[in-house]
Amino acid sequence: MPQQPVNDVMLILEREGAVCLAERQGTGYADGMLNLPSGKLDDGEDVFDAVRREALEETGVTVERDALRIVHVMHFRNPEGEPRIGWFFVARHWEGEPRNMEPHKCAGLSWHASDHLPDNTVPYNALGITHWRKGEPFSVHGW
């Protein structure tokens, strides 16, 4: 039976040309690397509900549905060979100040220029940010 891709949602919180990234820790995957607030869809969720939930769970901010724009979709195969569909959203307006809501999985949040991401940014996320900046709505990687 063919393997079905996992649907991931990534939130680009953008402020004055900078994006909010979280440093992974204690997860066993990509610890010490930076990634966007993100996660997988729960049963019964659409991508908008999932990204709003992840924003609140990981950063404590509330993003209204009409403040979200899908800016990129990526069909990706991770280094382990697992297929994924990444839904990249951007929000420029939200309620609250982003803060680390999951210290057991995140060492902290930081802001970085979207055109000069740190070398330790998770490649999947860095590719999505790069494609968003170029105005490219879709990409395929790792196949």
Results as ranks from 00 to 15, higher is better:
48 F>S: 12
48 F>L: 13
49 D>Q: 14
88 F>H: 02
11 L>N: 04
122 V>S: 05
51 V>Q: 03
113 A>W: 10
25 Q>V: 12
125 N>V: 06
67 A>K: 13
92 R>F: 03
80 E>V: 04
80 E>K: 11
37 P>A: 12
68 L>H: 05
85 I>V: 09
26 G>L: 04
23 E>W: 03
143 W>H: 14
60 G>Y: 02
73 V>D: 06
15 R>A: 11
27 T>R: 02
131 H>Y: 12
133 R>I: 08
117 L>N: 05
67 A>W: 10
6 V>C: 01
66 D>M: 05
47 V>N: 13
108 G>W: 00
106 C>S: 11
16 E>K: 15
128 G>R: 01
44 G>W: 08
73 V>S: 13
8 D>M: 04
62 T>S: 15
101 M>K: 14
13 L>R: 01
69 R>L: 12
115 D>L: 11
102 E>K: 15
140 V>A: 12
62 T>N: 14
112 H>S: 07
103 P>K: 00
5 P>D: 02
69 R>I: 07
8 D>N: 03
99 R>E: 15
30 A>E: 12
126 A>P: 04
16 E>S: 15
138 F>R: 15
41 L>G: 08
117 L>P: 02
49 D>V: 09
39 G>N: 07
100 N>C: 10
93 H>I: 08
43 D>K: 15
120 N>C: 09
108 G>Q: 04
35 N>S: 13
99 R>I: 11
28 G>W: 03
97 E>L: 11
7 N>G: 04
70 I>H: 14
74 M>Q: 15
103 P>A: 02
134 K>R: 13
139 S>A: 13
122 V>E: 04
17 G>L: 10
96 G>C: 11
111 W>H: 03
18 A>F: 10
25 Q>F: 04
122 V>L: 09
56 L>D: 14
132 W>L: 03
6 V>K: 07
23 E>N: 06
25 Q>Y: 06
48 F>D: 12
91 A>P: 03
59 T>I: 04
55 A>F: 07
57 E>W: 07
44 G>R: 12
138 F>E: 13
118 P>E: 00
38 S>Q: 10
93 H>S: 13
141 H>W: 09
129 I>S: 02
108 G>L: 04
123 P>N: 08
109 L>V: 02
134 K>P: 00
74 M>G: 09
4 Q>T: 05
11 L>Y: 01
67 A>E: 11
126 A>D: 07
109 L>R: 00
101 M>R: 15
120 N>K: 14
16 E>F: 11
17 G>P: 09
126 A>C: 05
7 N>E: 08
77 R>Q: 09
81 G>W: 00
17 G>F: 08
95 E>W: 00
52 R>V: 07
137 P>D: 07
65 R>P: 06
56 L>T: 12
84 R>T: 01
47 V>S: 13
124 Y>L: 08
82 E>M: 10
90 V>R: 10
